[in-house]
Design a protein around this nucleic acid. Sequence first.
DNA 1: CCAAATTAGTTTGTAATACGTACCATGTCA
DNA 2: TGACATGGTACGTATTACAAACTAATTTGG
Lengths: 139, 139
Amino acid sequence: MEDLGIVDSLAQLSFLVIGELGQIAGENGLSLIQLRLLGVLRDRTPGMRELATHLGLDKSSMTGLVDRAEKRGLLRRDPSPHDGRAVQVSLTDEGHQLARVLSADADRRIKALTEVLTDAQRAQLSRLASTLLTGATRI
Amino acid sequence: MEDLGIVDSLAQLSFLVIGELGQIAGENGLSLIQLRLLGVLRDRTPGMRELATHLGLDKSSMTGLVDRAEKRGLLRRDPSPHDGRAVQVSLTDEGHQLARVLSADADRRIKALTEVLTDAQRAQLSRLASTLLTGATRI
DNA sequence: CCAAATTAGTTTGTAATACGTACCATGTCA
DNA sequence: TGACATGGTACGTATTACAAACTAATTTGG
């Protein structure tokens, strides 16, 4: 592979990583967006609007997404204690369990992807990505 | 932002980059997958099977994707000169023009993302990503 | 304190995406 | 030449996504 510019290398890397995550999702009967949803819910119990913002979706898209996950028993909607209009979305036990499996799979697959790197390079990549994320999400 | 592991930092970075590309696509009346399709076709005239493999889709999914892009005048199907069953997909002039716009947009947006990095860091990230891609796609 | 404006979420309708299966037409090989 | 493989499409279905219209609860301005 020839030396790519920053744009192409980042884009291709991203498609590769997302592709891996998509495969993991598929192997566990989920779509990529549902995998993301479960990932977000691992350590939060947000409302629908918050979820939609976080995932970059319209709030109407969230309704269907959460509907389907709820029907599968992966999460539940509870009324918010602070706001009568709002809802708290949280993982069920089954959802938490599946999220752990997905997380372990992702760990394995992503680490396999980075096998070609030395430990130092892997740490460097991680640090650079973190730096970039800090800058980008602070905006 | 705390220091993430290699898995989370790569996953989050990837979602961020793909999100940017998706926004660029949207601003130009395309979906992310159509942006990818145009990107692939910039320097190739593959058949449907080849395209499907490259994009990780079923061949039946390709038909619809190419159908819609063809209807928009972005690409065309020509019969393959070597195989009576096969088809050669190629960009129209309009498709090439749009692909150039998308590419320029991506350049701008991804470079803005990496603004927090020094030039040296950016080069390092690009090199690490390229290395990783080389290893991953050689498998 | 109440009317007006916001906000959270759902519903409905439509389009794109994606898959599997079944199906043609063409190629390839024994 | 006949069997089989391959490239591509057609069809049916589920998921994803959006926009617009709507309901119900909350906040805000006067």
